[in-house]
Each structure stands twice: as C-alpha cells, then as structure tokens.
C-alpha cells in the first residue's frame, strides 16, 4: 500500500499539463479505473501533505502507471520538476473506482479539463468489454487540449467542446452532451469527472434522464485512508444523508446520491 515508485519519465503535454510515468509493478496490477495514488511530492514541510492523483492508465504488462496532472499550485509545480530515476513515496491504489455494469451500452464518458484522467483508464476497461464508448471532453481553450488519441483505445468516439470555440463545439461540454441526447443518443450508463459545477449540472439533468450516472469527486485530503475524516462529501442513501469520505467511500459516487 506504500511504495517507492520510480519516476520513469515526465513529459510536458501542454503549457501546464504533464504526463508522469511511475514504475510500480504491484500498483500497476492492482489499480482499477477511478482509483488514485496519494503522492508525497517532496520530503519537505511545504508542500507538506500528500497529493491525490488519479491513475490515468496502467498499460498491461508494463508495471507502469500513468499520471496526468496540471500545475495549479506549489505541489504540482514541484512535481513538474521531478527528475527521472528518482522515486516518490506513494500510497495506493486508493479508493473505490468506477463500476461499469455488464450489458449497459453505449458508455458515455463526460470529462471537464483534467477530469479526463481517470476516464482514460476507464475507457480501456470498457473497451475490453466490447462496449461502444463516447467521450465528451471539454476544456477552456485549444491550448489546454490534451493529446487524447495517445491514451484512448481506438474505438472511442470523441466529442470535443471548448469554451472559446477554438476547437470543436463552442460552449460548455454539458451543452454539447445535451444536444447529443436531444439528437437521440441513448446512453446505457454515464461516467463523469471534472469541475464540481459541471458534475452538479449533469447530475441535475440526470434526474430527467433514466440512465445510471457515476461521478468522481475531489476533496482536500490528509490521510487518504479514511482515518482523519477530512475529505467529506454529503451523500444521501436510503433517505438519510451523511458525510462520506472521498478517499475511501469514493472518489466515485452515484451521481444521484451526492448532495451538491
């Protein structure tokens, strides 16, 4: 559960997004889509706490995990300077991931920005199950567009939206999705990850649709293990609401059970 993962490579994908390859054979075998690693970026007092990152892929037989991350603060800035051959202590693979239901097709993936990371890994699992897969992917602008083709199985049908219209549909990815649904798209089930407003919007609309929705959430974390009760989100189950922990009860939750 705690390992020293070796940095095999760090590659710049866009102006602020990076691909990190970590060698950790046991984690690579254990990891399932939606799970995350809790990484000590540096043995320092600032950044101090571990940082959670989704597993974006674990190509079979390689013993390697892919992490795709965006530099948003001091921890990710330090991580973007990670040196090849050094190692990072990682807790993992943590959390409960996506659970696709056999037979439900097509699978619709909805990604906002960096939220695409766990969905890339999920796409490979769904592809193994021979499902039809559609990925709706939204970013602010063409400059933030990740080279997704490299990470996706070939059969994934990609629908792209940018807020500023510099590539693909102009507008929020949820609007692009809504148009596709109006146009007759009938998802078997849907998996979403991205900014909270996007997830909230799609969970709200989901009440009118009748297909299952799984969402992957983020919260501030300390332990990553369920011990500190820090990463709380409110969940309604069987008429009762309570705080559940993103790190161990999630990060993937039923979209209809989350209280936003």
């Amino acid at each position: 559960m705690l390992a020293n993962a070796r940095v095999l490579n760090l590659e710049k994908l866009t102006a602020s997004d990076y691909l990190l390859l970590l060698e950790e054979p046991q984690f690579a075998v254990q990891a399932s889509p939606g799970q995350f690693l809790h990484i000590r970026i540096k043995d320092s007092l600032a950044p101090f706490l571990r940082r959670p990152f989704s597993v974006a892929g674990a190509p079979p037989g390689k013993g390697v995990l892919q992490i795709i991350f965006r530099v948003v603060g001091k921890g990710t800035a330090v991580l973007s300077q990670a040196k090849r051959g050094t190692s990072l202590t990682c807790l993992g693979p943590l959390g409960k991931g996506f659970k696709p239901t056999p037979g439900l097709s097509p699978a619709v993936l909805l990604a906002g920005g960096m939220g695409v990371a766990p969905l890339l890994f999920l796409a490979h699992l769904l592809a193994k199950e021979q499902k039809k897969i559609l990925l709706f992917y939204g970013v602010a602008s063409i400059t933030e567009l990740l080279p997704l083709k490299r990470f996706l199985p070939p059969q994934v049908e990609l629908h792209l939206a940018t807020d500023d219209g510099t590539s693909g549909y102009r507008g929020p990815v949820t609007a692009l999705l809504a148009e596709a649904l109006q146009g007759g798209l009938k998802p078997g089930e849907m998996f979403a990850c991205g900014p909270r407003p996007m997830l909230q919007a799609v969970a709200g609309q989901n009440r009118g649709w009748n297909f299952p929705l799984q969402v992957s959430l983020e919260e501030r974390m300390a332990c990553g293990l369920g011990a500190c009760q820090g990463c709380a989100v409110k969940i309604r189950q069987g008429g009762e609401s309570s705080y559940r922990m993103v790190c161990c009860d999630g990060p993937v939750f039923d979209g209809q059970e989350v209280i936003w």
Partner: peptide, 23 residues
C-alpha cells in the same frame, strides 16, 4: 455526530488546519 461542512482541511506551511467537527 455528523461533523462540519467541507472543506474540512487546509494545508499550511509545515502543518495543516482541520475542522472535522468530531464526526
């Protein structure tokens, strides 16, 4: 006890703040 509303944690220099609220 249900505990406090999130966010419950914040990293600080050489430490952290928590407001779990005894969940």
């Amino acid at each position: 006890r249900e505990g406090n509303p999130p966010p419950r944690l914040a990293e600080t220099p050489a430490g952290m703040l928590n407001a779990i609220g005894l969940q």
